[in-house]
Design a protein around this nucleic acid. Structure first.
Lengths: 195, 195
DNA sequence: TGTATTTCTTAACCTATGTGAATGACAAAG
DNA sequence: CTTTGTCATTCACATAGGTTAAGAAATACA
């Protein structure tokens, strides 16, 4: 049971954990479900949970001064999602988390996060790597956003996450790539001619 | 002595450290200097150090597939800089670190980083916060890059880092903002008319 | 000093993407 | 089965920023 989570942990820290360790960890998480379009977290409230997606899809977004939403991250089965800044600092969240499909997650709150880190060194390591990965991936995305055109970014996204292309509405993918839905539509049309 | 570093640490973790702790920490770092235009780290080698800038200025950059350099971060007195991804993973660096002015840094290598974290809990915390801050700031910059125009980003940069505007060559600031030097020049000209 | 090198500015032109508005295709709700 | 709302597409036009090229200004160096 919950082998998705277990293999996610083992893969991240690149080592096997004991049944006992995993059970301890799992005991610190609780299952929750969200209907499509429901919010896991709303901007302005404090983010007290980090979520591991067991089923379904969701995304985090930030709203700019003009009121436009920008997708920060998608999460489907096997991904973690949260507003790590708010979670660690206990300040108000700047992100919104919303379900795209009916969603089943395992949630861990801050207290249990502390317990996990304090009692099991491998989880301390696990979470440090989680942030590091998040950091590296945003750096990468920023570099791509600055240096590549939308068409190239879309091609790379399609190649990297073919499943998301199927499951995620296009206006959200556009918002992730940093262009308007009309522009993504135009890019897709141009591409379909080339093939 | 080295009060810049000490106050940087205390400010980051939001608590005072003892003379003893600080001396221990300092003993794990070594002083180094670099001439202008010299490299602290070259892309493709492993990054074994994190640097605290005591004097001068430097920057990190990433080179894209077209051979164009994009500035990732500037660091002047009181800032930390490194390729954290390479440092933590021991994989090849994707960034280059280069001195903009004659530079004096305190460097900590990986072994000493481990020692610092293991022997003094407050430094474990310190470095975690350091990554978190780095993560948050890139997220913020990505959001701004996607949602704001270059003119707005430049205005914000000027307001946030007036000192850097004085000290850093404009083509590097342009590269940080994600535009060509000519475009930044155009923006500055347009702004000078408005005032 | 003068000369070379680097950095900044300007200008004319070009292209990718934004804007606004209309239309069609579904899917959800009644 | 109709109505309504959501999402994707298309088009005409506007514009920010890229490109190329040239010269001016600043800085380094001999």
């Amino acid at each position: 049971m919950k082998s998705l989570l277990r293999s996610n942990i083992e893969k991240t820290i690149n080592q096997i954990i004991t049944d006992n360790e995993f059970e301890q960890f799992l005991a610190l998480m609780s299952e929750r479900t969200f209907d499509k379009k429901k919010f896991l977290l709303e901007e302005g409230t404090v983010c007290n949970q980090i979520y591991f997606v067991e089923n379904g899809a969701c995304y985090s977004s930030i709203t700019d001064l003009k009121g436009e939403k920008h997708t920060v991250q998608f999460a489907i089965e096997g991904h973690w999602i949260s507003d790590l800044y708010s979670f660690f600092s206990s300040k108000k969240a700047i992100y919104t988390l919303e379900a795209i499909e009916p969603l089943a997650v395992l949630a861990m709150n801050k207290e249990n996060f502390q317990i996990a880190c304090d009692s099991m060194p491998c989880f301390d390591r696990f979470f440090r790597i989680l942030i590091q990965n998040a950091y590296v991936s945003v750096q990468y995305r920023l570099a791509k956003t600055i240096s590549e055109e939308a068409e190239t970014r879309y091609a790379e996204f399609s190649k990297l996450y073919p499943e998301l292309i199927q499951r995620i509405p296009q206006y959200l993918i556009a918002s992730y790539l940093g262009v308007k839905p009309q522009s993504l539509s135009r890019i897709r049309k141009a591409n379909s001619h080339k093939k």
